[in-house]
Design a protein around this nucleic acid. Structure first.
Lengths: 182, 182
DNA sequence: TCAGCCTCTGACCGATCGGTCAGGCATGCT
DNA sequence: AGCATGCCTGACCGATCGGTCAGAGGCTGA
């Protein structure tokens, strides 16, 4: 997608973020975004190829960090350190992009099915595996899933809690919840 | 609404449950349900007032149990026992209705906004309060929220794990994760 | 002055949605 | 035989969706 006038482009992006945060991705129409910007729906589609492209660009920085975390986890050889890297990295990512995560409140499962986010699904599975200390035991994988899904949902709420306080609470919780390596 | 021919009524209900489980509530159209049953869309709307009525009836048993849990929690006077009742009751409910919960995968936030489910939102908040041992500390409420949202999402997955194994894993996790009463 | 590009608009498109409606048809009571 | 009732259909409705398109208008360089 060829980059157009930066300011209008970014203005639309910001408006979309605001609307997605209130009514979710699927619950926000291109017309809603256009009204928020104060232009026509066609103008929005002049700057972006389609609706999904807006979301993709909005999420690009967060996904890049997620991929970096995925690489760091893959580089760890023993399950215990992989679990530690995954836990700390995921919390750091969730805090840093809590705004973006809030946009998708409750729409993760649906969004992960979209073609642009197919690889995110795979990364999530590897993240789960690392959090479960690469164990195949059901209990370990259930625990990891609860934490992964729970933290993702939580970061959208608690907008009044500071980054530091939220991070401390999540790290403490993870340390208590995750099963020690067997 | 007046009960019509029981078998067709239930047939539509079962078909809707199947479809909701695959494509979610919002992602399933009345036409989809009608096709699954093998009748016309108008026939579906002959047996049910509207689309939401199907979901409401599908969820009625689970919501009734949730309300009973809410009453039991309210009857507990000290925070510690309220926390215990909430944790055990919520896990029991999540296991018993894991099929129904799976239907709503990722659509809780949107569904809770619908008028028929407004009181569920309030019950959820009281459940969160009980799980946090009625503490106002941010860390306690964050932990409770992660567990609540995480468990709800988790029950939809892990269809291959038995009820007993899932319950044990969740109860163990909750016992480890929930902060002791201060 | 004029040509060409960038930005944007309003009208429009086909598809799909939830929901309505008049009527067809079988059944069973009077 | 006649009639009411229950069940169901196809045609249809208005609204909304994401997306397209021809062209208007302004700015710029030749």
């Amino acid at each position: 997608m060829a980059r157009t006038t930066p300011q209008k482009h970014d203005e639309i992006l910001a408006a979309a973020a605001r609307r997605f945060g209130v009514t979710g991705y699927r619950g926000t129409s291109l017309q809603d975004i256009a009204s928020e910007v104060g232009c026509s729906k066609a103008a929005v589609l002049y700057h972006f190829a389609n609706k999904e492209a807006i979301l993709t660009e909005l999420m690009a920085p967060a996904i890049e960090v997620l991929r970096a975390l995925d690489r760091r986890i893959a580089a760890e050889s023993d399950p215990e350190s992989a679990q530690r890297v995954a836990a700390e990295g995921f919390v750091a990512l969730a805090i840093r992009f809590r705004g973006e995560i809030a946009l998708l409140r409750g729409e993760f499962p649906a969004l992960l099915q979209q073609p642009d986010f197919a690889h995110v699904q795979q990364i999530s599975e590897r993240l789960l595996d690392a959090l479960a200390a690469r164990s195949a035991r059901a209990a370990a994988r259930i625990t990891a899933f609860v934490m992964l899904a729970g933290i993702a949902e939580t970061c959208g709420e608690f907008a009044d809690v500071s980054d530091d306080e939220l991070r401390d609470a999540l790290l403490t919780l993870l340390r208590r919840a995750l099963e020690p390596v067997h």
